[in-house]
C-alpha cells in the first residue's frame, strides 16, 4: 500500500469524526451532554447532499448542512435548557428524530451522485514531492476541520468568552452567581456543536462516499462522543483520537479490499471494538477531566 495514499485517505476518513467531535467537545465544555450527535450528523449528511445535488454546489451543501443541523440542535437546546428535560433521554430522542427525518428527506435522493468537491491547490506546497500529494492535495473542508481544532483550542485557552464557557461548564451555579448567562452560553455552544456535526455529516455524503444511503453515518456520531472522552476534553486529544480512528477504519477497509483470511465481519466490527478498548483504557487510567457540571440540568432558583 502506497504510504502517500494511505495518509491522504486517513485524513479524509478522519475529517467527519473530527468535525463532529470538536463540536461536541465545545458543547460538553459548556456542561451539556448532547447524545444526539449521530442524529445531527445524519441530518447534515442528507441536507448537504440534497442541497449540493439541487444547486450543483458542494459548498452550498456544506453551508446548508451546518445550518440545518444547528437548527435541529436548537430543538435539543430548547428542551434541555428551557424545558429542563433529561439530557441523556433528549439526546437519544434527537438521534431517533434525526434518523427518521433524514430517511424521509433522503428517499428522493438515493442512487444519485454528488457533485465533486474541488481539491484545494495550495500554490507551492502542492508541488513538494511525497508531502505535497499526502498533505496538501485535499479539499477545503479537511483544512477547515484542522483550523477549527486550532481555533477552538485558542478560543478556550486565550479568550474571555472561552473562559466564560468553561466557567459555565465547570460550575453553573457559581457562573450564574457571577452574572453570566448560563443558558445563553449553552445554547450558543449547542448550536456550534450542531453546525460542526452537520459539516461532518455532509463530508460523509459529499466526499467520503459520495452518495446518500439511509443510515450512512453508521455510528460515526457515537464514535465522536467516545473520542471526546478519549481526548479528556482537550482539542489536541480530539485531533489525535479522530486521526487514530480514521487510521483504523482505512486500514480495516484496505484489508477487506485486499481479501485477507480475516473474516470481513471481524474487520468491519473492529472500529467499534477498538473504540470500546480505548474507552476502557482511558477510564481505567482514571484521568478524567470532565467538566464539573456535565449533564446536570441548570435551574436558576433566583
Amino acid at each position: 500500500m502506497d504510504p502517500v495514499l494511505l495518509v491522504a485517505s486517513i485524513m479524509v476518513s478522519a475529517t467527519p469524526i473530527l468535525l463532529a467531535a470538536i463540536g461536541e467537545m465545545v458543547v460538553e465544555k459548556s456542561g451539556v451532554l448532547n447524545l444526539g450527535v449521530e442524529g445531527m450528523m445524519i441530518v447534515g449528511a442528507v441536507m448537504g447532499f440534497a442541497i449540493a445535488v439541487t444547486t450543483g454546489s458542494p459548498v452550498l451543501g456544506f453551508l446548508g448542512a451546518a445550518v440545518a443541523s444547528a437548527v435541529l440542535s436548537l430543538s435539543f437546546g430548547l428542551l434541555t435548557q428551557y424545558l429542563l428535560s433529561n439530557q441523556v433521554a433528549t439526546g437519544l430522542g434527537l438521534t431517533l428524530v434525526g434518523l427518521g427525518l433524514s430517511a424521509l428527506i433522503g428517499s428522493n435522493y438515493e442512487g444519485q451522485r454528488a457533485p465533486s468537491l474541488a481539491k484545494l491547490d495550495i500554490p507551492g506546497l502542492g508541488g513538494i514531492p511525497v508531502l505535497g500529494p499526502m498533505l496538501f492535495a485535499h479539499d477545503f473542508v479537511v483544512y477547515l476541520s484542522l483550523a477549527l481544532v486550532a481555533a477552538v483550542w485558542a478560543f478556550l485557552k486565550y479568550t474571555r468568552a472561552g473562559l466564560i464557557l468553561r466557567a459555565v461548564g465547570e460550575d453553573h451555579e457559581s457562573a450564574h452567581a457571577l452574572g453570566y448567562k448560563v443558558v445563553r452560553v449553552r445554547m450558543l455552544a449547542i448550536a456550534f456543536g450542531g453546525a460542526c456535526a452537520g459539516l461532518g455529516g455532509a463530508y460523509v455524503s459529499l466526499v467520503r462516499v459520495p452518495q446518500w444511503t439511509e443510515g450512512m453515518t453508521a455510528g460515526a456520531g457515537w464514535i465522536a462522543l467516545a473520542i471526546v472522552v478519549f481526548a479528556s476534553w482537550r482539542p489536541l486529544g480530539v485531533l489525535i483520537g479522530a486521526y487514530l480512528f480514521g487510521g483504523v477504519s482505512v486500514i480495516q477497509l484496505n484489508l477487506q479490499a485486499a481479501g485477507t483470511t480475516v473474516p470481513v465481519e471481524l474487520l468491519s466490527m473492529s472500529p467499534y471494538l477498538i473504540t470500546i478498548i480505548v474507552l476502557v483504557i482511558i477510564s481505567a487510567r482514571g484521568a478524567h477531566g470532565a467538566p464539573g457540571s456535565l449533564g446536570r440540568p441548570f435551574h436558576a432558583a433566583s
Binding site: S75, L78, L79, L83, L84, S85, N86, A89, T90, L92, G93, L94, L96, V97, G98, L99, G100, L101, A103, L104, S107, E214
Partner: peptide, 26 residues
C-alpha cells in the same frame, strides 16, 4: 406515505413527551 415518516413520527413522540414533562416537575 414514505416508510421513514413513521420513524420520524415515533421520534417526535419522545421529543414532545420530554418537552411536556416540564409540567410534571415544575
Amino acid at each position: 406515505l414514505p416508510g421513514a415518516s413513521i420513524q420520524l413520527f415515533q421520534g417526535m413522540l419522545l421529543f414532545f413527551l420530554l418537552a411536556t414533562d416540564v409540567f410534571t416537575n415544575y
